[in-house]
Design a binder for these strands. Structure first.
Lengths: 229, 229
DNA sequence: GAACTGCATTTTGTATGCAATATCCAAGAT
DNA sequence: ATCTTGGATATTGCATACAAAATGCAGTTC
């Protein structure tokens, strides 16, 4: 066999830990500003500190946590100005990706978007509570499915990075208002434009979707700011 | 004293290791595709594998290395298409940052740019060899100094990420041709536009600078492809 | 001669142990 | 009463040890 051809697809423990901690931050289980005590987090995940200590630097590189030397890692806490900047970055990258994605999309890409959208409209996912996490998981897959067809891995990585940083706050807002209907409506308009292949309309709707999310968020934020340092 | 106010500024070993490995990749000491055997790298840096194993995930998050599970980390090797994409990303982010930086720049920002430019014109730095590393270090500081004044940390981080990924290849090109004069000339034009505060001209020159670098690189690349896998 | 099998070596993956430092709380001084 | 100081505790930082897996080579078989 040719050297370097690995047969077994093995997911390293540090990577599993990375995903679990990341999800916990995204859904607010670890709140902005909260210190992450390594022994406690590792114990909760049933691993030792070693793999955790390899997962945390990745989260730090993405800006999800910050390291206070000799004090530990804390979940990143963003002020409204930074959240605004991240929305700008998201919009900038989405516009660029949207252009290429519409051009290069194929039939199966459209089908995938429609399938995800159908899953998301399940009323069970729309009620407030734990099921919201399911909706947000689908929401991320929906946005990915719209923008992945154009390729551009590095743009996508930058976008997912920026989006992840603001996601905890977006989830806070939807938990407060409990209203996903506007998002749902905008999604279906976006999916239509994607299916039709109208690049101008698609870009525009994607942009408006982000702008609307930002507006709602920055209005609701002051009330949601329970940021333990 | 208020809790959480750290007096001593302590640079953790994993961070020092991160910077050293990163520099080694940027200047080609670790070539694209090369496997990084942990014991060897750690020994070379005079540390154990622990801090190295916390530095590597950070580099992985930035795309500088890739992890092949149970085989080890390797320096990322980019094909021309990806390099092209990264230039697009760089140009997109630079344009956005340039706008704000010109608007918000202050006298000391202009002075800093001029000072760095002066240092870079030192003939000792322009000769081929080890001193090139000094020139590239200044080059990065120059670009940062131009774009930092606008704030926008997250845009900047994304830009520095994208720039770092293509830097090994840019260095290869300049090592082949040995010619930094075009870059130097473009830099002085850019610095002038920045000093004057002409946003259109500044953005345009910044863009052309990147475009020219890309063109030279993608022409020279086929000859420089000694990519040991 | 080519391909396969099995063992020895190398390298990664994870846990654990110990030292260094920060935090916390109580007791004393100003 | 407030501020300081001391020590006990908790937590991080780093190194080391051990287990698991992949690689490379030799010997064997067809």
């Amino acid at each position: 066999m040719a050297p370097g051809l690995l047969v077994t697809s093995h997911v390293p423990l540090p990577e599993q830990v990375y995903h679990k901690v990341r999800r916990a931050i995204l859904n607010g289980f670890f709140a902005p500003g909260q210190m992450l005590r390594q022994e406690e987090v590792a114990a909760r995940l049933g691993v030792s500190r070693s793999p955790l200590r390899e997962a945390l630097p990745r989260l730090e590189a993405e800006g999800m946590v910050v390291l206070h030397p000799r004090r530990g890692y804390a979940v990143t806490s963003l002020d409204p100005a930074e959240i605004g900047e991240l929305f700008d970055l998201r919009i900038l990258l989405e516009a660029e990706l949207a252009r290429h994605a519409v051009e290069r999309r194929q039939a199966h890409d459209v089908a995938r978007v429609r399938a995800i959208l159908a899953e998301m409209s399940d009323p069970k996912l729309l009620i407030t509570g734990e099921s919201r996490q399911g909706w947000f998981a689908l929401n991320n897959r929906f946005h990915d499915a719209l923008l992945e067809p154009g390729g551009h891995r590095h743009h996508l990585r930058a976008l997912e990075n920026a989006s992840a940083l603001i996601e905890p706050y977006i989830r806070m807002e939807t938990n407060l208002t409990g209203d996903l209907r506007q998002a749902q409506q905008e999604h279906s308009g976006i999916a239509d434009a994607f299916a039709v292949g109208d690049p101008v309309r698609f870009k525009c709707l994607i942009r408006e979707h982000a702008e609307n999310t930002r507006t709602r968020l920055l209005i609701a934020l002051p009330g949601a700011c329970s940021v333990p340092r």
